[in-house]
Simulated scan of single mutants.
Amino acid sequence: MQRRSRGVNTGLILLLSQIFHVGINNIPPVTLATLALNVWLFLNPLKPLLNSCLSVEKCYQQKDWQRLLLSPLHHADDWHLYFNMVSMLWKGINLERRLGSRWFAYVIIVFSILTGVVYLLLQFAISELMGEPDFRRNCAVGFSGVLFALKVLNNHYCPGGFVNVLGFPVPNRFASWAELVAIHFISPGTSFAGHLAGILVGLLYTQGPMKKIMETCAGIFSSNNSYPGQQYYFNSAVFHLILAEANPVPVAASR
């Protein structure tokens, strides 16, 4: 994994331009805080990428568990950050409006950690099944695994309709799987296991027991888990502009 260059961060400039084009007042607080945190850590990383990326060797074998927290919040370069955060922008606006800010923040935290855990399990399983120890050393970084989990969640709440994947209309319920394949057809260097981990976490929430477990663990505000409707009032034209312009596929995804 190479260190990001110190030249002009074009991707960061475009991301900030997109945020201000949408309007900070039109972005709900948890989504805005997630964007701000990722940008801040891109500019002021807590650790170098090689010390924050996630792998079986570093995290499990060497017991460096803090990588579960660091990995999703660090990005390899400004374009990696740009594509992931533009995707987060429209997903966050849509899902935070539906779920409410407290529950959406809870979802982001749980998805961030659990996606890393599932990634480690996948890499370990592949290494064992194929007899390839290199899979234990594959190191991933970036928010795109979480984005795939959010994509599954978003498609669950919007089951109708189609999305365009490489020029082909795909039903929403299959969109995550189609985009998983498409991204690795277009950009084979991305982390297939990282994206697959995100899809599996999303399915655990929408089809499995995770949501009930989260409600139980939530304690004091689980009883308020009625998912309030629209808590924020956005400019409708701006919201549709996001859907039209934002790239829902994190092309420069986990590496």
Rank of each mutant, 00 (worst) to 15 (best):
L200I: 13
F162R: 12
F174H: 13
S187K: 15
M130T: 11
G167M: 05
V146Q: 06
W177E: 12
F192L: 14
F174C: 12
L129H: 00
N164S: 13
F162S: 10
S191E: 07
Y157V: 10
G202Q: 04
T206F: 11
V181M: 15
E132K: 05
F148P: 02
G208M: 12
I186D: 05
I126D: 01
G198P: 05
D134K: 01
N138T: 13
L196K: 00
F174W: 10
H156W: 12
R173Q: 12
D134W: 03
L203V: 07
N172P: 05
I199N: 00
I126S: 00
G145V: 02
V146G: 01
V141S: 15
R173M: 08
R136M: 07
E128D: 03
Q207L: 13
G142D: 05
N172M: 14
L166I: 14
A182L: 10
L129P: 00
A182T: 06
E179L: 15
V163Q: 03
T190W: 04
S191W: 03
I199V: 14
L150A: 00
R173I: 11
I199D: 01
G198H: 01
L147K: 03
L200G: 02
V201D: 04
V152L: 05
A149Q: 01
S144C: 12
D134R: 03
L180T: 08
F185W: 14
Y157T: 06
S144H: 08
V152Y: 06
S191H: 12
F135V: 03
L166A: 15
N172R: 14
L166T: 12
V170W: 09
C139R: 02
N172K: 13
G142Q: 09
G198N: 01
